[in-house]
Design a protein around this nucleic acid. Structure first.
Lengths: 203, 203
DNA sequence: CTAGCGACCGACTAGTTGGTCTGTCAACAT
DNA sequence: ATGTTGACAGACCAACTAGTCGGTCGCTAG
């Protein structure tokens, strides 16, 4: 009786899982089809080439990722008007969220494409850049406003500090996968939080 | 008149370059052969399977990587007996070294295998784990001894702080590649240095 | 009733890909 | 001289891979 999930969605979901697990080049269209219970015809009906599937799943991932950050910032802002507090709330939230078993940790889909140098094909680079930019600007905003009341935070460092979010999270995903230790992620975000606490200390 | 580089070495060198550029799965044996100017016969004479080549290049990379860290620590120790100073020397050195154009930045070969989930084939996981362990223990050593004179550095945080080196460097490689901005690397290592300076401040 | 259309099916294909196999050849021991 | 061995050469192959194509089916507008 239940309405079947549309094939396109099933394909994207299956591909996201497989590509996250084994990389893009190593993920065959046939493998995606099997997991998604879809046919060759359906696949190439929805995606002109495999690269277009790549773009679709990155787009899908970036949408989730962007929505998460926006949600956490909104939550933080509803709790405090001090931008430094908002930023620390976001950081602590990520720390909490990341305390899940390794096989439930999403890991970053974009990394696969970055490391396989697929950024210039089928416009995959565009959503990736957009996502990075999004983190950079939203966190820079918070830092800039927080900097008003904290003189130890230098203006010119702000973009790099903002980027340290992306860097820490992605680096930690990597270390977690390499060591098989899921707790790495939240512990590394914890280091980032500590750094921010030291930078944002009022005095 | 110059002695030809042994084929095996040429294959490893070519493979390191190609795999760093496009990932392991996307690097074909034939492509390696072309760059290395070697034959199929030569290849499978030296490596039973493609996966064994994978292990060989990771081994090769890890050897360089380990040697670099050891060298920097030794240099630092010849300059100061304060372990905190040694650690900051190492960090500043990495910061300096990383200020090179993007196409000369080595990027981390291990990441490819981590993200392609190749760690359990052909024993590739072993050198990777060994390398991570090496960074963790060597930096933890420095931190532990530095902690004696700095009470703000908590013992239980030391392994995570040590791991933050790996995390920052790998994360920054990623961001640099994604944005095409080579300066990211040294700027992110700069954040790490700033964090350490705050943690290691005497008072 | 039917013509058209978008969604989907799956057998098929052209080109790769990792790996095999039969040799060649120089060095060295017997 | 002759046998052996290790380093390589390159034609060949079976399996796989992205992509194609002719066709089916249900829906809807005329």
């Amino acid at each position: 009786m239940s309405v079947e999930t549309p094939v396109r969605d099933r394909i994207v979901a299956a591909a996201r899982r497989l590509v996250t697990e084994r990389g893009f080049a190593a993920t065959t269209v046939d493998a995606v089809l099997e997991v998604a219970r879809a046919s060759k015809g359906a696949f190439f009906h929805h995606f002109p080439t495999k690269a277009d599937l790549g773009r679709a799943i990155v787009e899908d991932y970036v949408a989730d990722d962007t929505a998460l950050l926006d949600r956490l910032i909104a939550e933080g802002e509803s709790r405090s008007s001090d931008q430094a507090e908002v930023l620390l709330y976001v950081t602590r939230s990520i720390e909490t969220i990341s305390a899940v078993p390794l096989d439930e940790q999403p890991s970053c889909l974009m990394v696969t494409f970055i490391y396989e140098n697929q950024l210039d094909v089928a416009g995959i680079g565009e959503p990736v850049t957009r996502s990075i930019e999004h983190w950079r600007t939203r966190i820079s905003e918070l830092l800039t406003r927080a900097a008003r009341t904290r003189r130890s935070l230098r203006r010119e460092d702000i973009p790099a500090i903002a980027d340290h979010f992306f860097v820490t999270i992605e680096g930690a995903f990597l270390l977690a996968r390499a060591t098989g230790d899921a707790s790495v992620l939240s512990r590394q975000v914890g280091q980032l939080r500590r750094y921010l606490e030291l930078l944002l200390a009022k005095r």
